[in-house]
Design a protein around this nucleic acid. Sequence first.
DNA 1: TGACGCCGGACAGATTATCGAACTAAATTA
DNA 2: TAATTTAGTTCGATAATCTGTCCGGCGTCA
Lengths: 149, 149
Amino acid sequence: MNEGPRRSEMNLGMLCFIPAREMEARVMKAVIAAGFDDITLAQSRVFQRIGSAGTRVTDLAEQARVTKQTATFLIDQLEKAGYVERVPDPRDARARLVRIAARGRAAIEVAMEAEAEVQAEWTRHLGKRDADNLRRILTRLREIADPYR
Amino acid sequence: MNEGPRRSEMNLGMLCFIPAREMEARVMKAVIAAGFDDITLAQSRVFQRIGSAGTRVTDLAEQARVTKQTATFLIDQLEKAGYVERVPDPRDARARLVRIAARGRAAIEVAMEAEAEVQAEWTRHLGKRDADNLRRILTRLREIADPYR
DNA sequence: TGACGCCGGACAGATTATCGAACTAAATTA
DNA sequence: TAATTTAGTTCGATAATCTGTCCGGCGTCA
């Protein structure tokens, strides 16, 4: 009906945004369908960035690009819901490490399965060669586009 | 100090997310620095999707993946701040077209300049060949990852 | 070594973003 | 024409986010 938003000027940022959002939505849908229906998108964006050895609140905030206060707030929810736990950081008495808890691991399993499925779909559409190219180029792009790599 | 979030399992969605967010942040920063300091990220996500002939609230909501209510709310802010205007849709008396207003056009100019600069930076890093590849592959990916293309 | 500034994290309060439900008016369909 | 759908809004509730402030542990350098 409408000729759409300035299509000719579609830039790389927007082009990246579309699959990123699609993946996010698909994974969230699967996770919620699997019974983890008390997790929100904002929470998952912090949750995703927790490393296997635990990650500090400040680091999570930086990587998710929210303030420490917001991260604290979201982690509170995740902790109450049993997805993560806070343990003292042995190397710094000020800090606490946020770690994946049992329920969190269960959710990750579902998420990774959904992720793999979407990726397989995309690979079928693009062909193996271009799917690999895409991953390779994005990984290189990350070198300059991700301050927290 | 932390070995980071499950890096080996980094998926295409996340890889797309990183440059998308970086572009968004850089453009917003430029726009705000140019004096358009009353626009928010959420507003800009709707604003970006307004076509040159005007776009309906419902279409903006769909494309930005928010509810009509949220779109209405954000467009209210944009209208009050002079970035857009609402005009009746001549083809449907129920509908109203959201159109870019003068201040909006001025902001777009700044945004597009910033966009071009970031893209140039990325192209320098990737090389022309891979930058073109990236755009081509993402455009193809959009065929299945964007319900509103 | 100890005083001072910095960092990690949390609390409080305010603002912004988002959603679900319900409503009005216009268009479409049966 | 009556019933149903669609476009947009308003209302109320909840989620997410920010600024400002505070506390206690770290690091440093005089």
